[in-house]
Each structure stands twice: as structure tokens, then as C-alpha cells.
């Protein structure tokens, strides 16, 4: 890469609660196409982590293979990253999380990476309720191999090749809901207002948080006949409502009229203020969420926002009862049973 990222930053950049400026959350210069939706998502992750006052090194970024999976290089430069194998990010994230439950895990994947080659691992990481943020940067096509349709492309949608997709799409948010995901959201890379609080809530969620972010591919799939283009998505956005996320440390001040706002209390004391557009829809009720998704699909709309949340959930470590201390911090003293115990074992084998 021949680009040099400018190092100049305004001296009066605001500092967050843990003493970092937004610059401390940035990564290398992106090598994606100009206007790529993925870069907006990276910017939203930077903004969310800065606002949440997470120390950047307490995040581990893990991805698979593809344009989306390249992006962890472009945010949180002070975090460790792992660009693993195509479709296998969930397993690497699972192992990493098992080793150290104290870090924050951000998994970045794409529609090819999750809905095709990685569909199996996607399904099973949902089932395990691994405590992580799982973002699919969904552009309906394979960018790095020049625009083939992916499994999330809608029937009839046409990419740059002009050939209509024949096969029914996989809606990862619906699949996640069906498999028991405890946090499901959908957004659009161009909607920062919605995406940043959604990422903040997802990171705070103490279990598997899935975000399907429609992110147009400007090079191969931004045609008028594509359902993953900027134009189409903007015209068909159907927000489930608006909301804001109030981290634990901030005082809850709401300027909404009483009665119009519902609060979802997170385990750490954070609060999500929901301002629902449709009063019959409750994102804490899985059936209600499934109905809302189905109805939007029937209308040809893309339902966005916080679709489902179960704030009182048990993540993998709680299910399998691992110790509270990160496993990787255990020492010989905790791990090695010693020679006396081995003598007893020997004796039992005679």
C-alpha cells in the first residue's frame, strides 16, 4: 500500500472517559473502493467504541475472508485482529472468547462469508450465544472475485453483470432469530444515526449480538436493478422505530414524552430507549419480531433497527460454567493437578 495516512489531528480533539481521542480508535487507511459501504460501517464502529469509552486494546477483532473481512485493519489499530479463513470467523472467535472472557469480541463477516461458505458456523455460533458482536456487511455479492451473486441477493436482483439472480435469498437476520439469537438488529451503512447506537447496544449485550448491515457494493452491485443498491435501500427502508442507547455511566435523561418511550434495561445498567413506530411491535418478543420481519419482507421493505433483544440472557461461559477468571490467566497452580494426584490415577489403573 503506497498511501500514507495523514497523522495530523486537531490538538483539541475531545477525549472520552478513559482518556482516548477518536483517533486512537482508527486503523490503517482503507484499501476498499471509494464509496464502499463497508468504510461507513468501520467509521460507525470507531464512533461507537469511542463513545462507549472502551479501551481499544480490550477489543479483539476477528474476521473471515472477503472485502468485509479486510475491514478490521481499517479500525481499532490498537486492537489485535485476526483475519482467519473463509467462513470460519465464528469458530476462531469462539476459541478466542473461551480463552479470555474479559475482552470484547467484534466479528466482521460478509454475506458470502456467512450465508454461503460459513453458514454452518454462523448457525452454531448463534446457538451457543457466544458473547460477541457479529456484523455482516451485506452487499449481496462477492466483491473480491468481481461481483458474483451471493446467497443474500434477492430473486430478480441484477448486479453489474445484468443477469437476474434466480435463487431465493437467505435472510441472515431471520435465520438468527429462528435459531434463538438473543440480539438481532439490521441497519444500513448509510444510516449512521441508527447504526452507531445499534453497535453500542450490541457490544453491551451480554451474549450473541447479530447485526445485518446492508452495505452497497459501489463497484459491482449498485445498479438500479439491484436490491442492495444505495438507491433501492434508501427507498425501501422501514425502521422498526428509533432508539438511543445510554451507557451505564451516563445519567439517563430522556427528552421524549412519557409514554412514547419504552426502556430496555441492560445487565450492566445501560438503557436502550425505544421509540417504536408501531405500538403493536415489541422487540422483546421473538414472535412479534418474526412477524414484523415477515410483514416487511412481504411489502418489499428492508426492516431496520433493533429487531429483537433478550437482555437477560446466558452466554456460553455461563452455560458451560467456566470460571470467572479468563482461562488464559490460569497458571500451573490452577491447571496442573500435581504428581500426588497422578499417583492416585496410576493406582486406579493397576
Amino acid at each position: 500500500m503506497s498511501f500514507i495516512q495523514p497523522t495530523f489531528r486537531h490538538p483539541d480533539l475531545p477525549v472520552n472517559d478513559v482518556g482516548f481521542t477518536k483517533k486512537d480508535y482508527e486503523g490503517s487507511l482503507s484499501t476498499l473502493c471509494a464509496g464502499c459501504g463497508h468504510d461507513s460501517i468501520s467509521a460507525a464502529i470507531v464512533q461507537a467504541c469511542f463513545e462507549l469509552s472502551i479501551e481499544p486494546h480490550r477489543v479483539a477483532k476477528i474476521s473471515g475472508i472477503g472485502c468485509s473481512s479486510k475491514t478490521p485493519t481499517y479500525f481499532l489499530g490498537n486492537s489485535h485482529g485476526f483475519n482467519s479463513v473463509h467462513g470460519r470467523m465464528p469458530s476462531v472467535a469462539t476459541g478466542a472468547n473461551l480463552a479470555n472472557r474479559d475482552l470484547i469480541y467484534v466479528g466482521v463477516s460478509g454475506d458470502g462469508d456467512s450465508a454461503s461458505i460459513g453458514m454452518g458456523q454462523f448457525a452454531h455460533v448463534v446457538r451457543r450465544n457466544l458473547n460477541m458482536l457479529y456484523i455482516v456487511e451485506n452487499n449481496g455479492c462477492y466483491g473480491l472475485t468481481k461481483g458474483q451473486d451471493s446467497a443474500t441477493a434477492d430473486v430478480g436482483s441484477k448486479s453489474k453483470s445484468g443477469v437476474a439472480n434466480l435463487y431465493t435469498p437467505i435472510d441472515l437476520a431471520s435465520v438468527a432469530l429462528d435459531l434463538g439469537a438473543t440480539f438481532v438488529g439490521r441497519s444500513f451503512s448509510g444510516d449512521k444515526e441508527q447504526l452507531v447506537p445499534l453497535i453500542k447496544a450490541a457490544i453491551t449485550h451480554p451474549g450473541f449480538a447479530f447485526l445485518d448491515v446492508v452495505s452497497p457494493c459501489v463497484t459491482f452491485n449498485n445498479t438500479p436493478a439491484s436490491t442492495k443498491s444505495y438507491e433501492y435501500v434508501r427507498e425501501h427502508l422501514d425502521a422498526s422505530g428509533t432508539f438511543d442507547f445510554v451507557p451505564m455511566k451516563q445519567e439517563i435523561t430522556t427528552h421524549y414524552q412519557p409514554g412514547a418511550t419504552e426502556q430496555v434495561h441492560m445487565h450492566d445498567g445501560s438503557v436502550i430507549n425505544l421509540h417504536k413506530l408501531n405500538q403493536s411491535y415489541d422487540p422483546r418478543d421473538r414472535r412479534s419480531a418474526v412477524d414484523a420481519m415477515f410483514n416487511a419482507k412481504e411489502r418489499g421493505d428492508v426492516l431496520t433497527g433493533l429487531i429483537y433483544i433478550d437482555p437477560n440472557t446466558q452466554e456460553l461461559h455461563e452455560m458451560i460454567e467456566t470460571t470467572n477468571k479468563p482461562l488464559r490467566n490460569l497458571t500451573e497452580k490452577d491447571l496442573c493437578p500435581g504428581s500426588k494426584a497422578l499417583d492416585t490415577i496410576n493406582e486406579s489403573l493397576r
Binding site: 470460519r88 469458530s91 476459541g95 472468547n97 473461551l98 480463552a99 454452518g120 458456523q121
Partner: peptide, 17 residues
């Protein structure tokens, strides 16, 4: 595939797996 992916992820993060 997932089994070894998990073992690699855990080792990467400092646990023996």
C-alpha cells in the same frame, strides 16, 4: 473445521487448546 478453528482461536488468545 470449527473444532480446529476454536483451538486456534484459543491458542491465539493465550490459552492452551
Amino acid at each position: 473445521l470449527a473444532a480446529i478453528g476454536m483451538a486456534i482461536g484459543a491458542n491465539w488468545n493465550g490459552a492452551r487448546a
